[in-house]
Design a binder for these strands. Structure first.
Lengths: 193, 193, 193, 193
DNA sequence: TTATAAACGAGACGGTACGTCTTGTCTTATG
DNA sequence: CATAAGACAAGACGTACCGTCTCGTTTATAA
C-alpha cells in the first residue's frame, strides 16, 4: 500500500508553523485585496516570501487553503456572550455573523467554496462542516436560556441574512436582522401553543 | 474618442441569432457536464462549432455569458399557476425554485456570479436584478390572493432554501419548505393581530 | 482517428518562418555559450523574444530542436571542392569535418543526441541519417576521381577523428588526419593487389 | 581559510563502504534500466535505501558518480589473454570492447560524460584518463608480441568501432572489426617497408 | 566502556525547469 | 475585403529535481 497523498508538513515543527502562519496571514490580506479568483499560488508565493512548491506542500489544493483561511479567520472576531434571553443572544449572534461576512476575505473564500461545491464533494463537505460548526456555536451561546436550535431553525434564521448578503445583494440592515429574529420567535411561540 | 466596447453582434440578424442560440445551448450542456469553472471559451468554441473570436464578439466577458445562461434558462421549467390561496402558491413557488436549482447548470452559473460579485459590480447588479425578477414573479402569482411580498418577506422565504442548497448543503426537503412557508405565514398572521 | 500530434506551425506562413529562423539563430548562439544541457526552453524563450509555448509548438521535443540546429548548421561552412585526387579530396573533407566540430554548437548538439540515442530511437535515427548524409556528401566530392566509399570505409576514416575529438580528447592534428587518410589509402591499395 | 569542499566520507569506515557499494550497484542497475538522463539523485535515493543528502555527501556531483560507475564497471567483464600474435590479440580486444559497450550502463555513462566534456574540464579529463587506461591495457596484452601502440594507432583502431556504436549507429559486426584490424596491420606492414 | 566524531535518515525550503492550459490579441491567407 | 484559421505573448497550473539547511539518531573508533 503506497501512500496516496505525500504527507503534509508536520505542524509540530516550529519552522513549519512559522511558514504556515505567515502564508495564511498574507493569504487573508490578498483575499481581501484581489478576491478569491485572483488569489493564485503564483501571487501568494511571491507576496508570501515563499516558493510555490512550499504552498503545494502545505495545501495540496487551493480549496484546502481556503478552508484554513475560513476556519482560522484570523481577525479574532469573537462570538458574543451567552445569555438567558434568546432574542438578545440570537440578535447578537446574527450581528457577529454579519460582521464576519463584511470583511471580504472570509466571505470571498466562502463563496469560492460554494461555487465549486456542486462538483467537488470535498468542498461540499467543508461547507457542511462549517455550517454545523456555526450552528453548534449558536447553541452553546443559547445554553443558559435552555433553548436549542435544530438545523431547520438555524437555516430559518441564517438563510435570510446569507441571501441578502450574497444573492439579492441588499444591505443586511439591523431591521432585517430584527425581522428574522422576531419572525422566528413568533412562529416558535405560536407553534408551542 | 474611440469606442470603448466594440459593439456586440446585432441580435436582429437571424444568422447572429442562430449562432447565439446554438452556443447558449451548448454552454448549458457544458455547464451541467463540467461545471462553471471548466466552461472555458476554448472548450465552448470547439464544442459549439464556433471560433473563439466569435465567442468574444458575442460575450466580451465570461460573466456576460453566464448572465445569458441564467436569464434564458432554457429548461422551459415554468412557473406554477397563480391562485387564491397564498400557502399553496408560495409552496408551489418554492418547489419550482428548488427544481430550478437542481439542474447544475443554473445553480453553477449563479454561484459563479456570487463568487465574484464582491469584486465585480456588474455581477452584483446582475444578481440583484435576478433576485428582483424572481421576487416580482412571485408577487404576480400572488396577485389573485391580494397578498404582496416585500423584499424582506422574500428573503425570509427564499433565504432558508438557498442556505440549505448552497451553504449548509442539506437536502431541501418538502418538509423544510413547508416549515419555511408556515413560519412565514404564522408570524405574518401574528404580526397582523 | 484523432490527431495524435497537434500539427506543427505551417512553414509556408511568413510569420512562422520569421519566428522559427530567429529562434534557431538564438539557439545556435546559446548552444555555443552555455552548452546543450543548459539550453533550456526557458532560457531560449527569454533570449529569443518568444514564449515557451511557441517553442513547444515549433519543436515539441528538445531533440527536434537539436536536429534542426545540426541540419541547418547556419555557419555556412562549405564543403571543399570536388577533385580528381582522392587523397587531396579526403584530406580536405576531414579538415572541414574537424572545423565543423570545432564550434561548440554543432558538436554539443551532436553529443547531446548521442547521449540519449540508446534510449530514444528517434535520436538514434537522426544520428544515422546525419552520418549517412555526410557519407554521401563525401562520395559526391569523390565522384570526379571515380572512387566511392562504403560505410565501412567511411567509419574507418571518420571514426578516428571523432574518437580523438569526443572520447580521448586529444587534439585532432593535421598529422592525425594525414595518418588516417594515408592508412586508409595504403590498405586500400594493398587490398587491390 | 574555509574548507572549499566539505570532505567526502572516509572510505576506510566500513559503514561508508557498505553504503557506497550498495548505491553504486543500484546506480548501475538504474543506468541500464532508465538511462543516464533519468538517473536522478531522487530516484537513486529511493531505490538505494538512502537519503539524497547521503548521495551528495558521497558524490558532490552527478558526474563524480558516473565516473565511479565507469571505473568500477562491476560486470567483471575481463580482458582477453595476452598473446604472441598481434592480430589475434587486437581482435580479441576489440571484441571485449564491443561487449563492454553493449550493456547500456557503461555506454550511457560514457556518452553522458562526453556530452558535457566540452564545458566541464573534469569530465574531459576523466574521458582522457579512461581512454589512456584502455590504451595501456591493450599494450599490456600486446607485450608478449613485442608490439606496442601509439595513441595514434589506438585511435585508428578504436575510433571506427566507437563511431559505428555511437554516431552512425550501425551494428559493430565481426566483419567490421576484422576490417579495422587488418587495415591497421596492412598499413603498418606497408609503412615498415 | 564510554565518549566523541562521523555518517546517516528525515524532511522543510528556495529555486529552476518542465509540459500543459486558457486568455486576449494579432497576422495571414482565402473565398 | 471580411473573416476563419491559427500563431503568438502572457501567465498560471501542478510536478519534478536540484542543492542546501536543519535536527535527531545510529554507527564506529579511540580514549
Amino acid at each position: 500500500m503506497t501512500d496516496a497523498s505525500p504527507a503534509r508538513p508536520n505542524l509540530s515543527n516550529p519552522r513549519v508553523r512559522r511558514t504556515r502562519d505567515r502564508v495564511l496571514a498574507v493569504a487573508r490580506e490578498l483575499l481581501a485585496d484581489v478576491g478569491p479568483a485572483a488569489l493564485t499560488y503564483s501571487l501568494l508565493s511571491e507576496r508570501g516570501q515563499v516558493t510555490r512548491q512550499t504552498l503545494y506542500r502545505h495545501w495540496p489544493t487551493r480549496e484546502a487553503l481556503l478552508v484554513d483561511v475560513i476556519l482560522e479567520s484570523g481577525d479574532g472576531s469573537t462570538y458574543p456572550e451567552p445569555g438567558n434571553d434568546p432574542q438578545t443572544v440570537i440578535t447578537a449572534y446574527l450581528h457577529s455573523l454579519r460582521h464576519g461576512l463584511d470583511g471580504p476575505a472570509t466571505a470571498g473564500a466562502l463563496m469560492a467554496l460554494a461555487a465549486q461545491a456542486d462538483r467537488d464533494p470535498e468542498a461540499a463537505n467543508t461547507l457542511a462542516t462549517i455550517s454545523e460548526d456555526r450552528h453548534q456555536a449558536l447553541n452553546r451561546l443559547l445554553e443558559p436560556s435552555g433553548l436549542q436550535m435544530t438545523a431547520d431553525d438555524f437555516a430559518q434564521l441564517v438563510g435570510p441574512v446569507m441571501f441578502r448578503r450574497f444573492i439579492s445583494r441588499q444591505p443586511v440592515t439591523d431591521a432585517a436582522i430584527d425581522t428574522a429574529v422576531s419572525q422566528w420567535l413568533t412562529s416558535r411561540r405560536a407553534g408551542a401553543d
